[in-house]
Structure formats: C-alpha cells, structure tokens
Nucleic acid binder design. Sequence first.
DNA 1: CACTTATATAATAATATAATTATATTAGTA
DNA 2: TACTAATATAATTATATTATTATATAAGTG
Lengths: 114, 114
Amino acid sequence: MNDEKEIESMSDLLKIVGDKTRLKMLAFLKNGERCVCEFVDLFDLSQPAISQHLKKMRAAGLINERKQGTWVYYRLNDQLPSYVSEIIQALPSLKAKTCDCQKAGMSIPLEPLK
Amino acid sequence: MNDEKEIESMSDLLKIVGDKTRLKMLAFLKNGERCVCEFVDLFDLSQPAISQHLKKMRAAGLINERKQGTWVYYRLNDQLPSYVSEIIQALPSLKAKTCDCQKAGMSIPLEPLK
DNA sequence: CACTTATATAATAATATAATTATATTAGTA
DNA sequence: TACTAATATAATTATATTATTATATAAGTG
C-alpha cells in the first residue's frame, strides 16, 4: 500500500475512534463482551443510535459480534493495529451495570490486551 | 480527572488526528519543522484551509509554532500522550519538496520520537 | 510609505456525521 | 400463530466539520 493510501486508511480508522460515544463503548468493552442492551441502558441515546455506532465500529474492524438468540454481543477485535491497541489501553475501563443478558450468564470475559 | 472527562478529552484529541489532511501533515512533520508555505505547496487545498487545520492541531497541543519573519514554522510537540506518539510512529514519514523557506536554511530537523 | 509576501481570521457555503422517528427483521414464547 | 423483546435498517432532521471567498494583519523591501 502506498503512503497516501496508508494514511487514508489510518485516518478512516481514527475517525471512528475519535468520537466520545464510541470511545466510551470501547472503554466498556475492555472488560469483555457486552450485549447491545447494556449499551442501550448505559447511554443516554436512542437504541438506533447505539446500533449505528456499533455498526460503524464493526465495519471498521474494531469489534466483532456474536449472536445468541435475540441478543447480540460485541467484543474487541483482538487483532487490532498496535496504535489502536495503545488507544484502548490508555482508556479507563468502565464497569457496566448488570442487565438481563448478563444475569443469564452469557457474557464472556475477554483476555487482557497484549 | 474522572473517567468520563478523561474519555472526552481523548476523543477530542483523536477527532483532530482522525482527518486525512491533518494526519498527512503530521506525517510530514515527522522529519522536522515545516513552514506553512510548504503545506500550501504540498496540498491541493486553499491557504486558509491549511491555516485552519494547523490552528486546530496547535489548539489541541499536537504541534508548536515558531515565527521567523513572515514565515511560521510548525513542529511536533515532543510531550504528547503516548497513544498519540504511537499513532505518529505508525505513520509513514513523507518527504517535502524544497521551498523558499527551506532554501533560506531556516528549517530545523527534529529529534526522533522517543 | 506604497507594495508585496506570508499567514490568519471572518463569513458563509458545501459536505459529512450523528441524532431521531418510523418501520422491518428475527428469535423466543404463550 | 399471534405477541413480545432485541436489534437493525431507512428516511429524515439536526448538527458539526471542512471548504471556499473575501478581508485583515504583519513583516520585509524598493
């Protein structure tokens, strides 16, 4: 990839990360998987807004999804460029309140970042 | 600073970095100081657009300025948060064409990033 | 001082991004 | 199968960002 394209791809990714809501979502994901409903509970935003933020992060390869019944769980992609891992490491890790999907014992903790 | 504010300040900074033009400017600055006129030559953008991008990066603390006569030189701030330094390290370093301000022998090379 | 050059700022137009509301999809359940 | 819950998508509105054009400032030069 030439330098120009390389920079463009970096800026595309950094643009996704450079948003308060999405960065906060990533901070929540540091502790492991979270289901969509948790984000809906935690943020003062409509459910479609949450869904669209998650979609962008998924499209950018920042997170992966796992569907289980009607619930959809998201987790950090563990193959991120190192400059993105550094950003995530610099984030405080936020604790989520419990939610139906968690009481069901389905959420799986994540391996710590390398 | 609480977590919320910390995340907000990170997203403010990442938003500035998450722009193709500005990221390319940072890539040019990896090799050392550049004067505004060089950016004006290098980018297919109006002079005011260049000036405004530089102003944003300066306001965000990413770069510092040094005025010499009518020329203004910008250089990377050497006290950046490590997650920002990592981004800059991940950038290819771009070579600028020579420009009047450089022929004048005024541009000073930068120490490599820690 | 008049003129030019380099840069910055202001006002505004163009564009991109993020939110909402409304609706669709899909899985589970009575 | 009808109903509900969880999530996604579409359409649209609201807002933020980036660009341009016009103008201002400030330094250097004849």
